[in-house]
Every structure is written in C-alpha cells, then in structure tokens.
Nucleic acid binder design. Structure first.
Lengths: 351, 351
DNA sequence: CGGCAGCATGAAAGCGCTTTCTATCGCGCG
DNA sequence: CGCGCGATAGAAAGCGCTTTCATGCTGCCG
C-alpha cells in the first residue's frame, strides 16, 4: 500500500515464504497446492494488494484474453448494438473488449487492425459495410493473413467475405432479403412508385439493399424508374434534404424506402415540414430497426437486424465456441442471421 | 507469411544481419541508426510481416499505452457520448481504449477496475453516478489507491469525489446547477406545481438534480409538495407508467421535470396517449440532451451536458496533459464542465 | 526396515522486448 | 603520428510471469 511500484509475484512469494512458482499455481488454480500453503499465499496477496501483470502473463503464457472490435462510431446505435453483443459475449468467455473507432477512415481502420494485432487480441472484429476498393481489400486481406499466422482471427461482421483464400470468418445478415421483403410489402400494399433514398453508393450494404429492392420490383414486373433511386449517405440530413428537393421538383411517388432508419428520420421530418401526412399521403419504411424507429410518429415500419446477436456470433465464431453438434464438422467459418420486417404505422395503401 | 507463429525481433535482426537492439532502435526511432542499416532492417520487417508484441513491449518498457473506461451500457447515449470523447482523446494521445460495461452491477464494476489494473491501463475512467453505499465506496477507494501506487489513475467522471485522501481525479458537470436553472425557467414561465419524475433515489445524479430543483423552488418561495416528487429509475418505462398512474389519480400539476430525457420520452408518450397536449396543457423538460430530445414532438426543452467533452477531459486529466499555463501549478485533479438549458418546444406558460 | 510411489514444492529457463553499458571504427586535432 | 571523441552497433541484463523438470518428503507395501 505504501511502496510506489506494485508488488510482484516474487514479493508475494517472499512474504509467504514460498517460491514464485507456487504463487503462480495458487493464482491459476491449475495445479494442486496444499491448503495451508494456499492460504498463506492468499493472505500475502491480500496484504500486499498484489495485482497480476497481464502483460507478463500474456508474454509467458500465450493469450491475452482480449478481443478487439473496430467500428465507425460508438454513438451510432447500429454499431453500438453490435458492440454490446461483442462486449457481452467476450465477457462470457472471460475476455476484455477493446473498442476502436475509425470515424469512417480506411486508413485508420487498417492502422487499428495492426494495433490490435500488436496487442495480440484473440480476435479482431471488423464491423460494418465495406466500400468497393481493390487496394483496400488487398490490405485487409494481408492483415487477415498476418493475424491468422499469429493464431488470431479477423472476423468480418456485416460485410462480404474477401474470398476463400483469405482466412477470415464472417457474420452476415440477410441484407438483400430484408430489402426484398420490405419492398414486396410496399408493393402488396399497392405502391408502384417507390423512392429509394440514401446509403453511400459504393458501400456493400447499400448495394445489397438496393439489389433486394430491385429484385422485388422485378419479380412483380415493375419497371425500375431511374429517377426513383437516390443513393448518397446514411445520415439524417441526406434524407431531409433529398425529400425537400424532390418534393419541390414535383417528383411522383407514393412511398419511400429509406436505406436506413436514420435517413428515414430525416425523411419524416421533411415530410412533416412540407405538411405531407404519413402514411396517408406518403408511406415510409426504413432499415435496421434502431430505437429512433420507435420514436418517430408514426412509428416506423422497418427491417429488423439482430444486431446484438451478430456481435455475439462474431466472438463465438472467432473463439471457436462449438455450435450444436459440430464436433466432427470442419471449423465453422460463416454465420448468417436473418432479418425480418417489423410492421408499425408508417405504411398504408396509396390513395 | 508461411510460418505458423509470428516473427520476433530476433528473426528480423537475423535477417537484416544486425542485433535485436538495432531493430528495436529502428522501430522506436529513439536512437540514431545509420541510414543503410535502417533500410535493411525496414526491408526485413516488411518481408517477414513482423508485428511488434505489445506485451513484451509493455513489460520491458513501462506503459501499455492503453486507457480503460467503465460504463453501464454502450448503447445508452449518455454513456456512448462520453465513451466517444474518451476514445477520441485517447487516440489523440496514442492510446488504445478498452471499453467495459457493468450493466449496472457494482460487483462487476469493481471486478473491471481490477481487470483494467491488471492490464496496466494508463488510466481507468469510471463513468456515471454512484449509489450511496459506504462499503462500495471503500472498495472503490481501495482500488484507487492500488492504481495510484502502480502509477495509474482512477478518474471519476460524473460522480462525486471520494474524499481528499483518495487519490482520484474527477470530472464533474454542474448537475445541481442545471436542475436549478431549468426549474427556475419553468417557474418564470408561470408554473407552480412541477412534478419531478425519475432517477434512482440513492444515485448521486438524482440527488444532485433533485437538490437543484428544490433550491430553485425555495428561492422562489414555493413549497415543495411531497406528492410532486417521484424518484424511481432512469428508464422510459418509468416515465410512462408513472404519468399514466398520476393522471389517473387526478394529481394536480402543470409541468413535469423528468430526471433525464429517456424518462421524458416515456412521459411524452403517456401524455400523448392520454390526449394531453404538450406544451399547451402540460409542459415537459428533461435532462442530458441526448438525441431522443430532438426526436420527440414537440422537441424537448432540456439541460445540455457536454458529454463528449467530459470524456475528453477525463483522459486529459488522467494523462496529465498540461492545461493553459499550469507548468508551475500543482497537478490538476478536478475539472468541472458547465451545463446549459436548451430551449425547444415542450414548455409554455400554464393555462 | 528398505525402497518406491506420488504429492507438494522449488529452480530455472524462457516469452519478446527495451535499455544500459561496452566495443569498434574512422577521423580531426595537437 | 598518436590520442580522444563522435557516431554506430552489439551484448546482456532484466521486465513479471508460466511451466517444465528436478527434488524432497511422506507413507505404505513387501
């Protein structure tokens, strides 16, 4: 309590009158130690306020008992829910969780993978859609291999695989299917002219959602009007601005499929301001089912993604936790979770 | 790339035909190395895909270049914004950020402080109000001392100091002042019977907000009606249920001061359902100014806390980043950030 | 009563780095 | 021409732990 630097295992050993090996065994409970000795050691630990040094441990042993997660932004609920799943599942497996944010920068993302590798994280979980970019993908691939060589795992969570020759694990959700389902829902409600709004055009997430949307239109024999697709970004502002502009220019549509709930919130605000009632005049749907969907009035019909579950799956996959009956199966490398529509009050048949 | 375990500094040294000391110096740039040698070493590093081992480094050197933050829940915006500040400021100072969640459990919180201590984090930041509990406070104090002894720092962020004899640093916000200000605002608008709703009664946060509320009432010479104070919890459900109940029982009030924005959201929902218009019939205010405040209709008048800034300050304080001109001042140990009212549309004079 | 399981403990070799402390080389200066 | 010094590089000692291997001891069987 009074010394300026922490007690080491050797200090504890001296105080308890044993060797450091014995102290280590008491701490790790991985080897029989006489009860009396154990008690003496435990007393010494308490008296000295000894706290093990995780680095020395990681160096001597092998694993650091840590998992890393790389996301865009902790404040964004989409990422926050996944992070929560990762954190909780990591805790279940006795791991600490290092959360890193890229703020959307590829460079930072790559640097963070390296940093987490240096920390010898048991797993590095990369969350969120990826932009199409060969050079970038190659860099990620290189790091996946390095991690693999070092006995760790890169998990892609919510983005497509890098190919069979890159040693990653992946947790997917049915992005395309959700978009298909909700578009089809809109169509069965009678909508024919549906505005697709938002999402960075080169992001895998946007591409998949748009693909599902188009497939539904095609299946119902509807033409895909070019003027009805406006990609851009995932923020609220985009939804707001775009709807105001499109309304002003008099574009004809009866429903809006916002690429995510945040965009939908902007859309609803613009509609409110323009005096357009939802769902009577215009129907609106979103994607993700984050809390804002339930704050909106009317509440938003959207596609639910089991975000927290994805986070949990990512760490299970990485840590190789056995699934149901796969003790003979090859190591599992991909998990896919489903999406589902959540019907609330923002959709009605067109007038 | 093909070997199964990672390359070490010794491998790099051998490949470059130098000693490991030289490799270390090339990596750390903290000692002159001839250009030709440097280039040879760098080439070897690239060829081998060498990645430093942060544990060996932390063990040999001293700091782990890591800060830990302990919060209730990543998904809660109150914590998420603080976490964002911590993460960003940590990044600025070249630190990695370990985020841990307690889910409200004291035991888990204490265990996490220990875990972060084991990881030799440069700082451990404990976020959020604290329950009054002497035994618990003593445990936290013990850990603060242990951390201090080990050369690290425990930072209390948004909770009161443990006393001068406990070596912590603290980042406060003017909790009481914000509550005072917003209550006074309500009073100057003409409200006399203000319902105070929510917040765990033994939580420091609730206590401070309630104190500010009471001080404002007193200052205006208003009696504090006992039936107008209902503490409980910080969740939406509480606000919803309580308002429904109180409305049913016919309690007389013209404004509601929700202990935080989340409770206010529940309050607004209950009011909406009961057909009570806000702010015409009842005015509502909240606390925190998290995003939901702007989603509500009408938008919520509330107290803004510079959450992200608090997170940043916590890191700066812990890392001892020099403030303005304090190179002669004693080490700074407390920072206090202000709160301010944000006026939106949820308040009007009573009828 | 001797010897040999078998349990409890200790000694010591690393784990992969950083960092003194030395050693070497070439050169300028007296 | 010899000496000392600056500029580089290497040797080696840890950092605090885990783990293998060796050892001492108790006690039981023959």
């Amino acid at each position: 309590m009074t010394e300026m630097s922490s007690a080491t295992i050797a200090d504890v050993a001296k105080r308890a009158g044993v060797s450091s090996a014995t102290v280590s065994r008491v701490i790790n409970r991985n080897y029989p130690v006489a009860t009396s000795t154990r008690e003496r050691v435990e007393a010494a630990i308490a008296e000295l306020g000894y706290v093990a040094n995780a680095h020395a441990r990681a160096l001597a042993g092998s694993t650091n008992r840590t998992v890393g997660i790389i996301i865009n932004d902790v404040v964004d609920p989409f990422y926050a829910y996944i992070a929560r799943g990762v954190e909780r599942e990591a805790t279940v497996h006795g791991r600490l969780c290092m959360v890193c944010c890229t703020q959307g920068s590829h460079e930072k993302e790559l640097a963070l993978i390296d940093l987490l590798h240096e920390q010898r994280a048991d797993a590095v979980i990369l969350v969120g859609g990826a932009h199409e970019d060969r050079a970038y993908a190659a860099e990620v691939g290189r790091r996946a291999r390095a991690l693999h060589t070092a006995g760790s795992t890169l998990v892609l969570c919510g983005r497509p695989s890098l190919g069979d020759d890159v040693p990653t694990k992946v947790v997917e959700y049915d992005n395309e299917g959700g978009a298909f389902a909700i578009t089809d829902y809109l169509i069965t409600q009678g909508h024919r002219r549906i505005l697709f709004l938002g999402g960075p055009p080169s992001l895998s997430t946007t591409i998949a959602r748009l693909a599902g949307h188009r497939r539904a239109l095609e299946m119902r024999g509807l033409a895909q009007a070019k003027e009805l697709v406006h990609t851009g970004s995932f923020n609220r502002r985009f939804g707001y601005d775009k709807v105001r502009a499109l309304l002003a220019e008099g574009l004809d549509f009866t429903a809006i499929f916002a690429a995510n709930d945040t965009v939908a919130a902007g859309v609803m605000q613009a509609l409110e301001l323009a005096g357009v009632s939802v769902p009577e005049e215009i129907s609106v749907v979103g994607y993700d089912d984050v809390p804002v969907a339930q704050e909106l009035r009317p509440q938003l019909t959207t596609v639910r993604i089991p975000l927290e579950e994805m986070g949990r799956q990512a760490v299970r996959l990485a840590l190789g936790v056995a699934g149901e009956s796969d003790y003979l199966a090859p190591v599992q490398t991909t998990t896919r979770v489903g999406t589902s529509i959540v019907v609330r009050g923002s959709v009605a048949p067109p007038r």
